[in-house]
Design a protein around this nucleic acid. Structure first.
Lengths: 191, 191
DNA sequence: CGAAAATTTGACATGACTCAACTGGAGTGG
DNA sequence: CCACTCCAGTTGAGTCATGTCAAATTTTCG
């Protein structure tokens, strides 16, 4: 099992000691995911927290007209889950789909809860992890309510250069909340 | 000091035992805040986490044209802070201002950090608190990228009826990312 | 190589903003 | 308690930003 990435991920927070590492690893399940494969679909209940070792995912909602709206991407060393569905154990209204062939490590809800109870350090680490995600989301909301599509696009390019050059523009358009046609026009103007 | 609200707030998560209550209360500072008074201004570093006992606040950014964009409201039994500024101890680009005469309880960053280290339950509780805030924010992002102004407005009314009837429409417009004039037109159509 | 998806382009439609003027009500000071 | 000011809300005309639809072209992946 590929565990170096996830261990060094935790090292960037409060490092795990040997027992904690072992207890974590015992609860992880490694999976290979093909391009276009789903790890969560609408109406299913989200049962795992997923750590991306290799590859890239998108999480999105589908509106009444069938259009997708990207809420989040997750590439190497990022966590992804529908937290609401996971916590409240209720059916998700989101999809999580692999954009590239990927390798992931999953931990089941109950196993994570057990870790929280056995080793408070996991509470601490996940608190800080989600605080950082919260800060990121908040700055995205600010962008959404205060900036033009043009500005949101260039901000995206600057903020996630590594994502920008491996994602199709359609996916970026969906993430910043505009149509692919309009993004194409924005890009044409900039040259 | 008015501590019943904050204690029963924690009771809705993992209840605090007597020691934890006492240690928390010892670190709280009660303040009365007038309407239009700031508890955080741009370029100041956010030094406290604030619990609202009574009243209402808005947190917002000001753009280059001088317009305000509301990121968050906080009324009774809610927490508010610029988490980024607080964590990274860097100057904030946000304002937190009282919309109504208010009563708050504040805990300084270092005191909160001490509580985290002394009693892991605080890590747990704040993890869950922020997870819930994250879920809320995420559904707001989804709204922003997938819905029209009309829809965002009615969603706001349904989601925060108690806020909606104590806030001026200008503030709601700023929160959902449209101009006050346009909100006025939306409201005129609905009748 | 071939099918499916991504990208581009243009004409047109609509959503949302700007500016300016006007109205009414709420807070403030005398 | 009154008079005043100021801010929230409304309305309309004109403009700009963004969406829609359809078609043609290019790229990507199996």
């Amino acid at each position: 099992m590929q565990t170096t990435a996830i261990i060094s991920f935790f090292d960037s927070y409060l490092s795990l000691d040997e027992t904690e590492k072992e207890e974590l690893i015992n609860r992880l399940r490694e999976r290979k995911i093909k391009r276009r494969q789903f790890i969560l679909q609408e109406n299913d209940t989200c049962k795992h927290f997923t750590f991306v070792v290799e590859g890239c995912f998108k999480m999105y909602a589908v509106d009444k007209n069938g259009y997708e709206h990207n809420l989040q991407f997750a590439a190497e060393n990022e966590w992804i889950a529908d937290i609401e569905s996971l916590h409240k154990e209720k059916p998700s209204h989101l999809y999580i789909e692999a954009i590239e062939p990927s390798l992931i490590l999953q931990i089941a809800k109950q196993d994570l809860w057990d870790l929280y109870n056995l080793y408070p350090k996991f509470d601490r680490n996940f608190r800080v992890i989600i605080e950082n995600k919260f800060i990121e989301l908040q700055s995205r909301v600010l962008q959404n309510i205060s900036s033009t599509a043009q500005e949101r696009y260039t901000t995206f390019l600057n903020q996630y250069p590594n994502l920008a050059n491996r994602l199709p523009n359609t996916q970026i358009a969906s993430y910043i909340g505009i149509t692919p046609e309009f993004l194409s026009k924005i890009r044409a103007e900039k040259l």
